[in-house]
């Protein structure tokens, strides 16, 4: 077992672009679920709109990549309004049902045969982010130390993605320490109480849905750019639940909860992956129990086990406040 390699790979994943992308989506979900109490089970739809907004603009419409950003954001706001208008006046579970359905609708529309001319159908689109890499100020070469190495291209994506995470986290911090954030949290606790104190609950829930959706869309931009391709099935329901795992891991309703959660999530996933592969390769795990092809699934089993242990011993997540969880029992 090459521990240096295993830990190096884990660290690369923890600070890699996927971790940043999921941190962005999870920050949005944290705004919905952690702060406002909105059960959004379709955060992936906002990511998909970002990814497709960008790629369709370039690959299909032939416009500049920079046009893709306002288009993606506009699509995101439209989806949030469509989802929120009918459901936000109703009980929380209605939003859950509608969002999970909407996220699947977005995916099925994108992969449908009749949309092949626009979204590339099930093959998706690729090679649309050249303009992003063209403005890379980092000179070519490889950066890092030991096993942790990034190309100039990868480093550029990582820098922009984590830069966005930093800016958005700061924004969430300011918002959550403002009276606006106080209203959101009061809605999470009891929306009738908020209403009885003169707060327009519906409007605040809508603002939260739109804003959190926009963060997901920005995550989608970076996901599409980092991979230089979009494929509809990347944006399926489990992605939303990874985001939930991330915010629960890091601590819900904590500004840095989703950021830390995402780093740990991707770090652990990579750790179990490389460690299991090496253990199988070195013969520590007999092939009768598991072979190399089963590592991919097994790592999620182990991660699930880890999450269960976390819920038992630290239900508030890593950054959470135990006292708040104790109050939930009421």
């Amino acid at each position: 077992m090459n521990w240096e390699f295993i830990l190096g790979r884990s660290l690369s994943s923890a600070i890699g672009s996927d971790a940043a992308v999921f941190a962005l989506a999870a920050i949005g979900l944290n705004l919905h679920f952690g702060y406002t109490g909105l059960l959004n089970f379709g955060q992936v739809a906002f990511m998909a709109l970002g990814a497709y907004g960008l790629s369709v603009t370039v690959a299909t419409l032939g416009l500049s990549l920079w046009w893709g950003i306002p288009i993606g954001l506009a699509l995101s706001v439209t989806l949030a309004l469509l989802l929120g208008l009918p459901t936000l006046r109703l009980r929380a579970d209605y939003l859950a049902i509608v969002t999970i359905a909407a996220s699947e609708i977005v995916r099925f529309v994108a992969r449908s045969v009749s949309m092949r001319g626009v979204t590339g159908g099930s093959f998706g689109l690729s090679g649309f982010a050249d303009e992003f890499y063209a403005v890379n100020p980092i000179p070519g070469g490889s950066y890092g130390f030991g096993v942790v190495q990034f190309s100039a291209r990868a480093l550029w994506v990582i820098a922009v993605a984590w830069g966005l995470v930093a800016i958005i986290s700061l924004m969430v911090y300011v918002l959550m320490h403002s009276p606006w954030g106080r209203v959101l949290r009061s809605i999470r606790e009891d929306e009738d109480a908020a209403r009885s104190l003169g707060k327009n609950v519906y409007s605040y829930k809508m603002q939260s849905l739109v804003l959190g959706g926009l963060f997901g869309t920005i995550g989608g931009f970076m996901y599409a750019i980092s991979q230089q391709s979009v494929q509809p099935d990347t944006y399926s329901t489990p992605v939303t639940f990874y985001c939930y795992a991330i915010i629960i891991l890091g601590g819900t309703a904590r500004v840095l909860g989703p950021v830390l959660g995402s780093m740990i999530f991707w770090g652990l996933l990579s750790f179990t992956d490389t460690a299991l592969r090496q253990a199988v390769g070195a013969g520590y795990i007999p092939t009768a129990i598991m072979d190399g092809t089963q590592v991919g699934q097994s790592r999620f089993v182990l991660l699930g086990l880890g999450l269960m242990l976390l819920m038992i011993f630290r239900p508030q997540g890593i950054l959470g406040d135990r006292r708040e969880i104790a109050l939930d029992a009421h």
């Binding site: 924004m171 300011v174 918002l175 320490h177 403002s178 009276p179 606006w180 954030g181 106080r182 209203v183 949290r185 009061s186 999470r188 606790e189 009891d190 009738d192 109480a193 908020a194 009885s196 104190l197 003169g198 707060k199 603002q207 804003l211 309703a253 708040e324 109050l327 009421h330």
Partner: peptide, 30 residues
Amino acid sequence: KALSRLTVMENMKLGATKQKGESFARALLP
């Protein structure tokens, strides 16, 4: 309907009406 996971002071401050910081744009500028 006490808002459990808000402090007593936050519960109180929520009650005030016409708060400038309750609008999204102004909330960003403390």
